[in-house]
């Protein structure tokens, strides 16, 4: 289960289409002048979940799970008929349990009251633990008890993660136990991984964080979101992009032998024929092959990448 997305409740019951999302917002739309505002609400609430999660010292994955719970709740409900603040608190509370790192209900109530009251002027948040517990009860019901969530982080680490992965907090990268390796598999062995530069992995991680501000997690399987984030990283991360371009042009200059080197640096680089840089170069050239070898719909990945860009823009 934890290994097979295709047999999970996440895949079977919780990937929805745009018309479902549109339908879900139909009541709310009556109250806004511009439908775009609802998109802003998506961002606002995601930030709020993130803030509360950080106050509760939840890990990124727990915050992501809480956000998915929140989005799922509002596939079936409208903002105007509910109190998103108590829903947010309940999402964090349940997510912490679902991810096996529970926090005490008292803490959730007091941190939520403080955050919402002091920073957002929301005075209605109940001080009574049982109110939050009541919301939890309704939330779990709305979620149809599907509490296991797959996240793009996992695909990212599977495809690009390093041992002890420097850029990303080690524990976030997952402490997969070594004896989990059953049968034939190459993942987790480091073989076939895309080696991202220092900082690039972190950028991909941050792009994934940002996707939770939208409804992407309801629309697309997490592994495609991860691949879109990797793709964007290859383009956005300056050093990575430069080295891809360099290796592309240097391979050009190798094939077209008469071509004089256009700038100093690529030639210098290729002339420094230590085994290390050769290996690195070879690797960089492989990026396109790596992406192609993933055997996923690239047009879908491109669509997701577009949506992420419009979210960031």
């Amino acid at each position: 289960m934890a290994t097979n997305f295709w047999s999970s409740s996440h895949y079977k019951r919780w990937i929805v289409d745009r018309s479902t999302l549109h339908q879900a917002r139909s009541d709310d739309l009556q109250y806004v002048d511009n439908p775009e505002y609802l998109g802003f609400l998506n961002i606002f609430f995601a930030n709020l979940i993130s803030k509360l999660g950080k106050k509760l010292q939840l890990r990124q994955r727990v915050i992501a799970t809480a956000t998915v719970f929140f989005r799922r709740f509002y596939v079936k409900n409208s903002y105007c008929e509910t109190d998103p603040f108590i829903v947010i608190a309940a999402c964090c509370y349940v997510a912490a349990k679902a991810e096996e790192s529970p926090v005490h209900i008292k803490n959730v109530v007091s941190e939520a009251r403080m955050l919402f009251g002091e920073e957002y002027g929301i005075k209605s948040f109940p001080s009574d633990n049982s109110k939050l517990a009541e919301m939890e009860f309704y939330l779990v019901d709305e979620l149809e008890c599907d509490l296991t969530i797959f996240h793009p982080y996992r695909t990212l680490m599977t495809l690009c993660g390093k041992e002890g992965g420097g850029a990303v907090p080690e524990a976030e990268a997952g402490e997969a136990d070594a004896d989990d390796v059953d049968g034939l598999r190459y993942w987790g062995t480091g073989e076939g991984k895309l080696e991202l530069q220092e900082g690039a992995l972190q950028m991909a991680w941050f792009i994934i964080n940002d996707t939770y501000r939208s409804e992407l997690c309801l629309l697309y399987p997490p592994h495609l979101i991860a691949i879109a984030a990797i793709y964007l990283t290859l383009v956005f991360h300056a050093q990575t992009r430069t080295s891809i371009q360099q290796s592309a042009s240097s391979s050009h200059s190798h094939s077209g032998s008469s071509h004089p080197s256009h700038s100093g640096s690529p030639t210098r680089r290729s002339s420094r024929s230590t085994s290390h840089s050769q290996k690195k170069q070879h690797h960089q050239q492989d990026v396109i092959g790596f992406m192609a070898g993933l055997n996923v719909s690239m047009s879908l990945v491109a669509t997701i990448a577009q949506e992420i860009i419009s979210l960031l823009g």
Binding site: I105, S130, V140, C145
Partner: peptide
């Protein structure tokens, strides 16, 4: 009878059982 929060063990049992057959 009041709401005090669903126990960790109930959450586990429910969450795991929903995923397996």
């Amino acid at each position: 009878i009041t709401y005090t929060g669903i126990s960790q063990s109930a959450i586990r049992e429910i969450a795991l059982n929903r995923e397996i057959t």
